[in-house]
Design a protein around this nucleic acid. Structure first.
Lengths: 146, 146
DNA sequence: TACAATGTCGACCAGATTAGTCGTGAATCC
DNA sequence: GGATTCACGACTAATCTGGTCGACATTGTA
């Protein structure tokens, strides 16, 4: 598996923050409840996202977490690399892209796959994921009303 | 990391078998020495490849391992799925492709990436990897002779 | 100023996976 | 019968995953 729950949960948390942008800080407990994530685990992910500048946090009553940028300016690639580290599919590619020169015999295959994937992930923003989720919600409501 | 050393080593072993196809069974110790792999670990990988019908093995003096098919008929995708199990980048895609219906919010992204990758890997055979390696060897020799 | 709400940080933990090693046994050839 | 080779399962150490927990820092409010 290329992705662990770190990346998965972290993206969901950012989607939640994006959906509530402009409403003041969003509390960890609210994110955890709405997205059904373990709150104390979410804690670590938010810490990482803050360290990398995706969110800002404030303490005290009424405190919480907010995006530092517009959702349309946060790419899925950036978020996942923040939370998961390198997304390289195989060790030799990870080393090569860290500036190393080691290239195993099949790395040309994996480098191509890696480049494709990064390109795709770079083209998707949190804003698009929010929009996708909203469309899904509308579809669900439409189904229900039939 | 999507791939462990299992897939990596296993592919190298098959390349070795392909290069020595038609010369009778190739011994585990020879593969391990030429490819610089731990022999006792390679044992497990060859067992898996045999169970899935990629190679046949014979015991006793002069025994060893051989491909059951032409290298051009063995795709990288098939080998890797044999050794690594599913190559799905994230859990929800793995479940969806096992017949489940669970689709997380971002799975449309990952399904596309997964499909791209499988298509690429399906288009590459062990024969091509052997040819690539030979080309690399020729280049190295050419460099040396300058 | 006290207290409650909230985030911050690091220690800790159980289970799974990875990357092996090793030993016993089975088949085969001479 | 002995040497050679594969077959298979037990075992292990290190690392990663997916958390939990507790002490502490910060801040708003009464």
């Amino acid at each position: 598996m290329l992705l662990s729950t770190k990346g998965d949960y972290g993206v969901r948390a950012l989607i939640d923050l994006a959906k509530h942008a402009g409403e003041g800080p969003v509390q960890r407990s609210d994110i955890a409840r709405r997205r059904q994530l373990p709150e104390s685990y979410l804690d670590h992910l938010l810490a990482q996202l803050r360290r990398d500048g995706f969110i800002r946090s404030t303490r005290g009553p009424g405190g919480g977490h907010e995006l530092t940028r517009a959702p349309a300016e946060i790419t899925l690639l950036a978020v996942l690399e923040c939370l998961e580290g390198s997304l390289a599919p195989i060790g030799c590619v990870a080393e090569a892209n860290r500036g190393g020169e080691s290239m195993c015999g099949q790395s040309w295959v994996w480098q191509g796959i890696y480049d494709d994937m990064r390109k795709r992930l770079e083209g998707i923003t949190i804003a698009e994921l929010v929009e996708h989720e909203r469309a899904h919600e509308r579809a669900a409501v439409a189904n229900y009303s039939i």
